[in-house]
Computed example of a mutant assay.
Amino acid sequence: MANRPAPALVLREGDLEQLRRLIRASTVKAGLAQRARIVLLAAEGVSNTQIAQTVGVSRPTVLAWRDRYQVKGIEGLEDESRSGRPRQVDHGQIVSATLAPPPKKYGVTHWSSRLLGRHLGISNGTIAKAWREYGVQPWRSETFKFSTDPELVAKVTDVVGLYLEPPENAIVLCVDEKSQIQALDRTAPLLPMQPGLPERRTHDYKRHGTSTLFAALEIATGTVTAACKKRHRHQEFLAFLRQVSRAYPDQELHLVMDNYAAHKTPEVRDWLSAHPRVKFHFTPTSASWLNLVEVWFSIIERQAIHRGSFGSVKDLNARIRAFINGWNDRCHPFVWTKTAEEILTKANRKPISNTRH
């Protein structure tokens, strides 16, 4: 008597569409899609032998996945976790070895996965897996800077106080110089951006001199008063101070700036004494980030200078002036949000009261 074909497999409610999605999905593992196809064919009443021939597996495999589906549903088609051989390499020990400096015999400053693998007698793939698990990246290096200014607390409190609570009827200006701006001219014309292609330029260039940009950023409006000069001395700085003073006549001015020597020469101090409505506020040493004009310098660098091509310093200065004119038409306030206490706490310094210095 011939063997009767197995009865059609009864699918659980809602599983039909899900099984079809598993077969059609391009991101599903091939094994899971194959098992879903076995179950669907079994649900259509196809014999186990025919299913095996159609899918390309053995008949016992078809029987096994039919049984798994009947017991656990679609979840039963997933791969079960395998116990396998327990991990013999402690990832924590790998990371500990990574954090230790390499022996002098290697002559390197940091580990690579291949060198550490050779040193520990394991594969570099195992090393890489441990690094990913612990978030260790020996090939990366960053810089940091901290201020050793003995007046750090007073200066931070003073400058941040100006940003958060500016004096009434006064203008707060962030002043600095962006020096050594190079007029670089590419050796071939730029190739403009096209659909599917970015703008392209030659890697080599010609130098046509440098310029220094003096800028004063009014934080309440974002307006910039600026001048391009050949050099970066106290004479140029004094000339720029006079320009700023003319731009804001009869108004009290508070100028935030760094500790550059040209800002503190006797000539500058004499000018300051003769103009009592202008007051200087110095940022701590190694804390240029506290001067908001540095943010504006990064904007003009990205939007007007870095990708430019200039045949002369005159061309460079013209581009800078054009950007500033356009900027002042669309400018916006520069808003400071962190308090002096938050900054000093992060710097592990004891904050003082909000007394203005």
Rank of each mutant, 00 (worst) to 15 (best):
M1G: 15
P7G: 11
P7V: 01
A33R: 14
R37D: 03
I38W: 02
I38A: 13
A42P: 07
A43K: 06
N48T: 08
K72N: 07
K72D: 07
G76T: 01
R85T: 02
V95D: 10
L99Q: 12
P102Q: 03
V108L: 10
V108P: 11
I122Q: 06
I122N: 08
G125N: 13
I127S: 06
Y134P: 02
E142Y: 14
E151C: 13
Y163V: 00
P167T: 01
V172H: 08
K178N: 08
A183K: 13
M193C: 15
T202Y: 02
A216R: 04
E218W: 04
G222A: 04
K229Q: 13
H232G: 10
F240Q: 03
S245R: 13
A247D: 06
Y248R: 12
D250N: 10
L255D: 04
A262Y: 14
H263S: 07
D270Q: 13
W271T: 01
H275S: 06
V278L: 04
K279M: 01
F282A: 12
V295I: 06
E301Y: 12
E301Q: 15
A304W: 05
S309D: 01
S312W: 04
V313G: 07
N317Q: 13
R321K: 12
F323D: 05
I324P: 07
N325G: 12
V335L: 05
W336I: 00
I343S: 11
L344M: 02
N348Y: 09
R356H: 08
